[in-house]
């Protein structure tokens, strides 16, 4: 592998007051494509629409399985929400884990609104992890909203957006009141 090293003069831009500029070096190495393909590689590598089509077909092929998983996860959220709100740490942890999973995957499979509610719930729980305080009402509203996106899939997106905005405001108000209370 060919390495080219540039010494301290440029490296000075990288440092803060605690670093000795002479101890910082810039290094440039060939791209992975150059290393793998050698002279066969002609830069730049372009995006291939056929590959993207294959990837999107793959997502579609996994969709049926994911819908089953999502339904099971949402059913579990309904089971967990009450014990989680009553202080059951294990239920709370599992509820977050499921919401985190839904946040990451629902949008990929076309459940964008479900994913956004899960994202909002995760952020509320993460905020609570920092302060040690959670608003149970906010958690319940989120779980209800997540369930609703699956049980009433034809809901007007405007209503979903308004609900999401209302929940965001509730979270913000909750954060402010906790801050004021110290």
């Amino acid at each position: 592998m060919k390495h080219s090293k540039i010494g301290s003069r440029l490296a000075g831009h990288e440092t803060d007051g605690n670093e000795n500029p002479t101890e910082v070096r810039f290094v440039r190495v060939p791209s992975i494509a150059e290393r793998k393909l050698g002279s066969e590689y002609v830069a730049p590598m372009r995006l291939d629409p056929r590959i993207l089509d294959q990837m999107q077909a793959t997502i579609r092929s996994l969709e049926t399985k994911y819908v089953e998983t999502l339904s099971a996860q949402v059913s579990m959220l309904k089971v967990l929400v009450e014990p989680a709100c009553k202080g059951d740490a294990e239920a709370h942890g599992r509820l977050y884990a499921i919401a985190h999973d839904v946040r990451g995957l629902a949008g990929t499979f076309g459940f964008a609104v479900t994913g956004r509610f899960a994202d909002s719930l995760c952020r509320h729980l993460e905020q609570g992890d920092k302060s040690g305080k959670y608003d149970d009402t906010v958690i319940r509203y989120h779980v209800d909203a997540i369930c609703d996106t699956l049980e009433s899939p034809g809901t007007d997106s405007t209503i979903s957006t308004e609900t999401l905005d209302a929940l965001e405001k509730l979270i913000a108000a909750n954060r402010e009141s906790m801050r004021a209370a110290g």
Partner: peptide, 21 residues
Amino acid sequence: ADMLYKAIIAATSTPIHFVEK
């Protein structure tokens, strides 16, 4: 899909610069 694909292309098809300190 497109986000992942673009990120992989970007990460693998251009020379890599790093610092040593």
